[in-house]
Design a protein around this nucleic acid. Structure first.
Lengths: 196, 196
DNA sequence: GAGCAAGTACAACATTTGTTGCATTTTTAA
DNA sequence: TTAAAAATGCAACAAATGTTGTACTTGCTC
């Protein structure tokens, strides 16, 4: 990505460029933002931009990787996990970044977000391994995880698009209802086994 | 989008520009494609491009709307629907457009695809209204639909990313297994009711 | 604190972008 | 067939892009 290394001053400049882009995104459509502007707002020469990033998108990706790291830390609670808990952490996390997510969505940049999110799915799988009681074959487990990630994501996007006409609690309830019929919780499975 | 109308010659030019962009996407990264090139390949003046579209993205959106129309026709079979059938039509449809979907994915353009897909969710809801037996409250129905759309989409993307390491049949089986635990079919519900 | 590596600014460049008036051609409709 | 409407090509423009060579400034290391 960067033609430059990761010296303190380089990191500093990259941080400024990220901040500059984010602040410009709050002002005007992403497409209208020029690299010239980003550099000016970051008080750096335009050529310096190109020494760090190849494009606006590359700047965003840098920010997204930081967000993904943050999200993974939240998931790593040590507790037992079920889909409902993951959903709650997922929503709570993005609620804190609503401004950004709204901007990304409005500018058709959300594939970048989901991509970053997906990139870290294996880590999530690892984190929750053995903590889930899935009523689904291990063979199709990766598909199921992808299905849930995409599903949660799309609901979140729908919520953003609707300009938050539903409450946060509504969202959580919908998730719970959906996840109840998607992944059974251990208790449900025990119940089912007893019934037989 | 277009500053021009929909006269035959305008439609013709727009079609050429779409074709030109698609063919260029097969040759080089989307970002590297210039509007100059598109116009040249379409054998039109660069200014003519701008009279029809505001950007490369606008050209893609035009193509996507056509695809969406096609997809909706496939869904409108008149038959009873369940999530498995929708999934099958969904996959079969995109299989026919794998080249395009692969290119879109490789160039971070898939949010545009999903967006178009979502745009037509209400039509799908209308099409399948009363034909589904959902074990989910009507209130959360729209969320459930969004969840499934996003889920199916993400699995498809995962499949594309893996360069099709799983077979088509594998994909269908995974969908069936997941949808069985997501939306119960009418038979399952009847069984449950009898049990009580 | 001297030397060295890394980062930055400045400047110049060929190219692409987005836009617009005007003349010309093509299409539509009377 | 002819006149109006619509679309295209051409040309010119200011601005942004992407790239690179050179000289200056950091900041780290010994």
């Amino acid at each position: 990505m960067a033609h430059t290394g990761n010296n303190p001053s380089a990191i500093r400049s990259q941080g400024w460029l990220v901040e500059a882009l984010l602040s410009l995104m709050a002002e005007k459509p992403y497409r209208k933002i020029t690299i010239k502007e980003i550099a000016e707002k970051a008080e750096l020469d335009r050529s310096t931009f190109y020494r760090h990033f190849t494009s606006k998108e590359a700047v965003l990706e840098r920010h997204l990787d930081q967000l993904a790291q943050e999200y993974l830390q939240r998931l790593d609670t040590g507790e037992n996990m079920d889909m409902g808990k993951v959903a709650k952490i997922f929503i709570a996390f993005w609620i804190e970044h609503l401004d950004f997510i709204r901007l990304a969505r409005a500018n058709d940049l959300d594939s970048l977000l989901l991509k970053t999110f997906n990139k870290h799915l294996p880590s999530i799988h690892r984190l929750t391994k053995g903590q889930f009681a899935y009523s689904i074959s291990e063979e199709h487990m990766e598909f199921a995880l992808a299905f849930n990630a995409g599903g949660m994501w799309n609901i979140l996007m729908k919520w953003v698009d609707s300009d938050f006409e539903h409450t946060y609690e509504d969202l959580i309830k919908a998730f719970e209802e959906i996840s109840r019929f998607n992944f059974f919780r251990q208790e449900d499975i025990n119940e089912r086994l007893l019934e037989q």
